[in-house]
């Protein structure tokens, strides 16, 4: 296994694409641009946390799903422990992001900017997917490794 865990490519691409659309929105004038700038500030920090510790363990899912849990994966436990410890904070950041997204959505709709309205809806979906699947799956990866490797709970 690669000693440095990477965020799965599909999730990384989604982050890059969302970020690139948002950067475009920050260049818009008026309320749309202002809402985008606030959102950009919130998302940069949050995506950074996700890419640092919340999402790299997700890359182990295919191997773990096949029942493979090896000692070399143990370094991922520090990441899943950190995710568990910071989960409440991450979810609270989501609430702030969602508030900013809704502001952007309202501005995009009032200016008939369909592409930014679609972006806002897509980002809302991304946040929901993170909460309902990605974060719990990352935590489960840690729990499963502990179970299989006999490491006990953190």
């Amino acid at each position: 296994m690669n000693p440095k865990l990477e965020v799965p490519q599909s999730v990384k691409s989604e982050h890059e694409e969302l970020h690139s659309i948002l950067v475009g929105a920050t260049r818009e004038a008026g309320e749309l641009g202002a809402a985008a700038k606030l959102l950009d500030t919130l998302m940069r920090q949050h995506f950074n946390s996700e890419e640092q510790f919340a999402l790299p363990p997700v890359a182990l899912l295919p191997r773990l799903a096949r029942g493979e849990a090896t000692a070399e994966m143990e370094s991922a436990l520090a990441l899943t422990d950190r995710l568990q410890a910071e989960l409440a904070n991450m979810l609270s950041e989501h609430q702030e992001i969602l508030k900013a997204v809704r502001r952007l959505l309202a501005a995009a709709r009032s200016q008939d900017r369909v592409e930014y309205a679609e972006f806002a809806e897509r980002l809302i979906r991304h946040v929901q997917l993170a909460e309902q699947v990605l974060y719990p799956a990352a935590v489960l990866a840690g729990r499963y490794m502990r179970l299989k490797l006999g490491r006990g709970e953190s």
Partner: peptide, 17 residues
């Protein structure tokens, strides 16, 4: 792509766990 990299394996891990 997300389904293949994340969703399907996550579902299988739930069953495995």
């Amino acid at each position: 792509e997300t389904e293949e990299e994340v969703i399907y394996p996550a579902s299988m891990l739930v069953g495995e766990h």
